[in-house]
Each structure stands twice: as C-alpha cells, then as structure tokens.
C-alpha cells in the first residue's frame, strides 16, 4: 500500500539569489530511495536552499538539474512534483479545520469524496488526532500542529517527504518526543525523507546519512557514526559534539604535547595536532600510567556527570566528563588517560 520510494539526484545545482548572494555552490547529491537524509549545518549554510531546490520552490542556476528516478524535473514547480513538505512554521491554513487541512491535497487531486474521507480518517488515526478533527488550527498546541502538518503532507501518499526544520518551533522536551515519533514514522513508511536541521542531536537520531553543510558547500556526507567518529574536517569535528584539540608533535612512541604524552598509534604523517572527544578521556586511577597532567579550571555539576575544564598548558583547556561521584575544585591537580582509539589526526 505504501508508494514506491523515490530516488532523487541533484546535478551541478547552484543557487544565486537576485541580489547576487551565492546561497549554494554547485552541488551533486544522490539520495537513495527510502533513506532518510539529513541536511545539517549552521544557518546560512545552504541546507534550506537545497531542500527548496528539491521541492521545486527554487530553481537551480542554469546548468543545474534535479532528477527524480532519473527523470529531469528541474522545470516543474512544486505543485507538479508530488512531494510532501512539512514547513518550519507548519503553514497550516487558518481558514480550514484540522480535517480540511489534511484533506486539502486530496481535494486538489479531485479524489472521490468517499476516498478523501477514508484517507483523512486514516491519517487522523495514525497521528492520534481523531478528537481534534473539527478543531480550527489556531486552537491547537505546537505539537498538535506539527502532527497535522505531517498528516497533511503524508495524506497524498507522496514518494518523498521533505521536512524543513520541523521541530525548531517547539520546546526542548516536546522536540525529543516528536523526534522519536518522526523517526518511527519514517522507518515505518519506508519513504524517502529529506530532513533539514541545525540541531546535531536531531540529525544523529534521525539520519541514515547526514550531509554536513557550510558556506553553501558540502563539508561531509556520511552515516552518523562516520560523521561523529571520522569527521572529514575540523569544521565538522567542531560542529558535531565537543572536540578537544591538542597541539604537539608525533614521536616514535606516541604524541608529545604540553602536559604529557598521548599513546597515538603511528600515523606515518608526522601529526602536529590530535583531537579527541570528552568521553574518550578518563580520570587516571594512578599517576604512574597517566597520559596527561593538568589543573582543573572550572567544574560544572550536571547531575548524571560532571563537566570539567582542565588546563594542561596548551592554548585551549580540555573538556572532560566524569561520572565519578567525587567533587572537583578549581585549582586541583588532575591526571588523565585518553583512549588511543579515540585519537584522531586530520
């Protein structure tokens, strides 16, 4: 009953606005049928423009092509592309009830009334909105609106679903719940989904693959695991999660730096800097085997763990997380171990 998911391909798609700003450098991107692809990046990185190019709300500069299952749809407007879209502000029609909003695409497609009704009922049930069917949209809470927007986009059974920062307008707790719901929904439908966000946690949780973008270019494409553990650039490393960076020089038996020596496996490239995540750092049990020595400059108790800033004599302090139940005082001397497999050289 679910439609066959759509494969989307962008070829040389650049976008320059009328005032001359280049929102997107020429981009090639393959989106596999049925996958959830997340476009991630800070504001102004071109992720929304990319989505709007796929949707047909923007046209690429001359030479760019958008292909749906190999067919060139560049010249088609959004109304002829049959994709579902969820907008950041939801774009629910205030002049229609919840049910009318959900049924609007079916009405445009002139489906028989009975089928329209059946399909709307199905969507209402799927989104647990039955009780709200006849409400006006301005009587809904943020989370409810979000689900109406999803139901409306899915009611026409599109072959691809485009979501433009759909959770940004909601508060943190609701965002977590809905993120999980959307994840289950997309997996269940097996639909091709393209999801734009600036929230890396959202990207990690939802994406089969993530496209990290910056300044109108793709910085890296990969699975969440790749992106987190094998960042292709310093930008990606810093944008996703927290990353410590230590300068120094590679030696025969590791990496010498301020505060000690890291057990870096030989790289053969003569690394001048290494990076590692806070969770790969442990507070050393005994001073003999410790990799680094430093002093605590600040400590923040977060409940389940404590976040420490540790000065080892390098330019930036290290960020370290400890789940130990002991307290730390600024000025206190501390020794650290860094897992060798967490060390990253770019």
């Amino acid at each position: 009953m679910n439609p066959v998911p759509l494969a989307i391909r962008l070829e040389g798609c650049a976008r320059t606005f009328a005032d001359g700003t280049r929102a997107l450098e020429p981009l090639d991107l393959d989106i596999r049928a049925g996958e959830t692809l997340v476009l991630l990046g800070p504001s102004g990185c071109g992720k929304t423009t990319t989505l709007r190019l796929i949707a047909g709300l923007e046209r690429p500069d001359a030479g760019g092509r958008v292909l749906f299952d190999g067919e060139d749809v560049t010249a088609r407007g959004i109304e002829a592309r049959h994709v579902g879209m969820v907008f950041q502000s939801y774009a629910l029609f205030p002049n229609m009830t919840v049910a009318e909003n959900i049924g609007y695409g079916l009405r445009i497609r002139k489906l028989p009334i009975r089928e329209q009704r059946a399909r709307v009922g199905e969507m209402l049930a799927m989104m647990r909105l039955e009780a709200l069917a006849d409400r006006a949209v301005d009587q809904l809470s943020g989370g409810q609106r979000q689900r109406v927007a999803l139901a409306r986009a899915l009611a026409v059974r599109p072959r691809a679903l485009l979501l433009d920062e759909p959770l940004t307008a909601l508060d943190a707790q609701l965002r977590d719940t809905l993120r999980m719901e959307i994840n289950l929904l997309l997996r269940g439908l097996g639909i091709t989904a393209i999801y734009v966000t600036h929230d890396q946690a959202e990207a990690m949780a939802l994406g089969d693959r993530i496209v990290v973008m910056a300044h109108g270019r793709v910085a890296q494409v990969g699975t969440p695991r790749d992106i987190y553990h094998r960042p292709a650039s310093a930008f990606v490393a810093d944008f996703i999660g927290t990353m410590n960076r230590v300068r120094g020089s590679e030696t025969a038996d590791g990496f010498a730096c301020a505060g000690g020596r890291l057990r870096l496996p030989p790289t053969g490239r003569g690394a001048a800097a290494v990076m590692f995540r806070p969770e790969d750092v442990r507070i050393a049990a005994d001073d003999e085997t410790a990799d680094l020595a430093g002093t605590v400059t600040a400590s923040f108790y977060l409940g389940d763990r404590t976040r420490l800033f540790v000065d080892i004599g390098d330019e930036c302090p290290l960020t370290v997380e400890s789940s130990a139940r002991c307290t730390f005082r600024p000025g206190q001397a501390i020794r650290l171990n860094v897992q060798p497999d967490g060390l990253l050289v770019l």
Binding site: N2, M126, M127, R128, D138, Q139, S141, G143, Q144, L174
Partner: peptide, 19 residues
Amino acid sequence: RRRFIPADDTDLAPLALKP
C-alpha cells in the same frame, strides 16, 4: 479573543503506527 489552547501536549503518547 484568541482561543488558543496553550501547550496541552498531555496526549503525546508515541504514535500508533499503521505502516
């Protein structure tokens, strides 16, 4: 008068999916 109902998201149990 706006009849907006503020964040009543008590009914936000995970969706019953019908794939």
